[in-house]
C-alpha cells in the first residue's frame, strides 16, 4: 500500500540522513508546499521530514514572490558541486542532496555493482534526480540499492534500473530517471550535470533558486 511505502520511505530517509545530514543541501522540495492540495488519498509524494530535517537557508526565508518567474535566478550552466566523499559512502547508502536548484531533490547511492556512468573505485556510485519522471512523486524513499532499483514509485509504481542509467524497467514513466553526472576528485564526489529533464520543470536551470557551487580544491 502506498501509505506503508511512505512510512518506509520516511524511515529510510531518517536512516540515510544520519550519514548524509551534512551533505543535504538547504531547501525543501518544490512539491512540499503543494502537498496539502493533493487529494487526501494521495500519498504525500515527498517525505515531509525533508522540511524538518533541513535548515532553510537565508535566501529561502524571504517572502516568496508572487510568480515563480519573478524568483528565477537563472543558472546559465550546471555548477560543479561537492556532494559527498567516497570514503563516507558505503554500499547500500542512500543520501539525498539538492542540485542544481535548491528545490531539486536528488539521491546518491552506492549499488555494489558496476553501473552505467558509475564513479568511485568500483564504478558503482550513481546519483539520480528523485522525482519520478511519470508524474513527479519522490522515489528517494523507494531506492533499493541491493537490487539496483528505484521503485516501485509510491504513486503509480514505476521502477527504474539504477545500473542502466535510470532506465524505466516497468511502469508508466516514459523517460529514464535523470542521472546526475558525477566526478570524483581527491576522494570527493561532485555533481556536474543532469542528464534529462527533471519532472515538472521546463528547464532544469529555471524557476528556482540556484544552489551555491561548492569550492573545488
Amino acid at each position: 500500500m502506498p501509505d506503508d511505502d511512505i512510512d518506509k520511505a520516511r524511515r529510510r530517509f531518517l536512516q540515510t540522513t544520519g550519514a548524509g545530514a551534512t551533505l543535504v543541501l538547504a531547501g525543501c522540495s518544490a512539491f512540499d508546499s503543494d502537498s496539502e492540495e493533493t487529494p487526501t488519498e494521495t500519498p504525500d509524494p515527498t517525505p515531509t521530514e525533508t522540511q524538518e530535517e533541513t535548515n532553510p537557508s537565508e535566501s529561502e526565508t524571504e517572502d516568496p514572490p508572487e510568480s515563480p518567474s519573478g524568483q528565477v535566478e537563472q543558472l546559465d550552466a550546471y555548477p560543479r558541486v561537492k556532494i559527498a566523499s567516497v570514503s563516507e559512502l558505503s554500499t547500500g547508502d542512500v543520501v539525498e542532496f539538492k542540485y542544481p536548484l535548491q528545490e531539486q531533490s536528488n539521491f546518491l547511492t552506492r549499488l555494489g555493482e558496476q553501473a552505467w556512468d558509475g564513479v568511485g573505485p568500483d564504478g558503482d556510485i550513481v546519483a539520480f534526480n528523485a522525482l519520478c519522471t511519470h508524474a513527479g512523486c519522490n522515489v528517494a524513499g523507494s531506492v533499493e540499492p541491493e537490487d539496483s532499483r528505484a521503485g516501485p514509485c509510491p504513486c503509480h509504481y514505476t521502477s527504474f534500473d539504477l545500473s542502466k542509467g535510470g532506465l524505466v524497467n516497468m511502469g508508466q514513466a516514459t523517460s529514464d530517471l535523470p542521472q546526475i553526472e558525477l566526478e570524483v576528485d581527491g576522494g570527493d564526489i561532485y555533481a556536474t550535470y543532469v542528464e534529462g529533464l527533471v519532472w515538472g520543470y521546463h528547464n532544469n536551470l529555471r524557476t528556482g533558486t540556484p544552489i551555491e557551487a561548492a569550492q573545488s580544491d
Binding site: F31, D34, P68, G136, G200, Y201, H202
Partner: peptide, 16 residues
C-alpha cells in the same frame, strides 16, 4: 499554472 508543475497535478510537460 505556475512552473515547476505540481506532482500528480496533470500539467507536467515531459520531453516525450
Amino acid at each position: 499554472i505556475d512552473f515547476p508543475a505540481q506532482a500528480l497535478g496533470g500539467n507536467g510537460i515531459t520531453t516525450e
